[in-house]
């Protein structure tokens, strides 16, 4: 408990001090995780929508697979991406290992199934309501997917939020492919792991408190946006 209060005090001191190093770490965390979520949205939203309304063989199997991949262990993803990006791996020539780009790739792999699976669910529900009307209007299947994605946009924010939470919180993948290099690939979570291994538990906890605060701010913004959309009957 003593550690906890020390951590709380330290967290405030860190935030008030706004040390350049802390700002850098938070900035990198956000940059990596939000980039990964953005790419995962570009892939996962259409993928989820196609799984919801598409008609092709293997659709059910693919849905099951995507659902299962939601629980991918970050360390496994990290290891796989490491092996692929390693200088002796197939994409070694790109020299991406131990860079933020490698971390974005790993987190994109982690987050995409979450976004796709949640999108599938949301779009399936909305499609139940829209399907007949859109078909009566003669909307093409691509048009249907676009319409459903747009009209579900505020519900889909929640999917993106879930993905952001996963990305910001995971440490296993970014630690392996980023290497936790100071000033280059050190994020909130890898810094927490490092401080813990240095026995600086209060410092680690303080960083944790800041991370949780960040998550709260991000989700509060999204929920606020959703609530105002709901008032407009858009969500």
């Amino acid at each position: 408990m003593q550690d906890f209060w020390a951590a709380l005090a330290q967290a405030f001191a860190l935030i008030l001090g706004a040390e350049a190093e802390l700002v850098e770490i938070i900035g990198l965390s956000l940059r990596v995780s939000l980039s990964a979520v953005a790419i995962a949205c570009v892939i996962g939203l259409p993928l989820g929508a196609v799984l919801a309304v598409g008609r092709f063989p293997g659709r059910l199997a693919l849905s099951v697979l995507v659902n299962a991949l939601m629980g991918l262990p970050p360390v496994v993803v990290g290891l796989t991406v490491y092996l692929v990006l390693s200088a002796s791996g197939p994409l070694g020539v790109l020299q991406l290992l131990y860079t933020p780009a490698a971390m974005i790739i790993a987190q994109t792999i982690l987050v995409t199934p979450i976004i796709a699976a949640l999108t599938r669910q949301v779009i399936e529900d909305l499609s139940g309501e829209y399907d007949e009307m859109l078909r009566a209007m003669g909307v093409s299947r691509a048009g249907m997917i676009a319409t459903l994605l747009w009209d579900a946009r505020y519900s889909l924010l929640t999917a993106a939020l879930a993905g952001t939470g996963r990305a910001l919180a995971e440490v296993g993948a970014v630690l392996i492919v980023g290497g936790n290099i100071n000033h280059v690939t050190r994020t909130m979570t890898t810094a927490i792991a490092l401080e813990t291994s240095k026995g600086e538990l209060a410092m680690a906890l303080a960083l944790g408190i800041i991370l949780v605060t960040l998550s709260v701010i991000v989700s509060a913004c999204v929920m606020g946006l959703r609530a105002s959309a709901a008032r407009m009957a858009y969500a």
């Binding site: 940059r31 939000l34 980039s35 953005a38 790419i39 570009v42 860079t99 933020p100 780009a101 974005i104």
Partner: peptide, 9 residues
């Protein structure tokens, strides 16, 4: 996405 990626390297 590209804005973010552009900032990465």
């Amino acid at each position: 996405t590209f804005a973010f990626l552009g900032a990465v390297p």
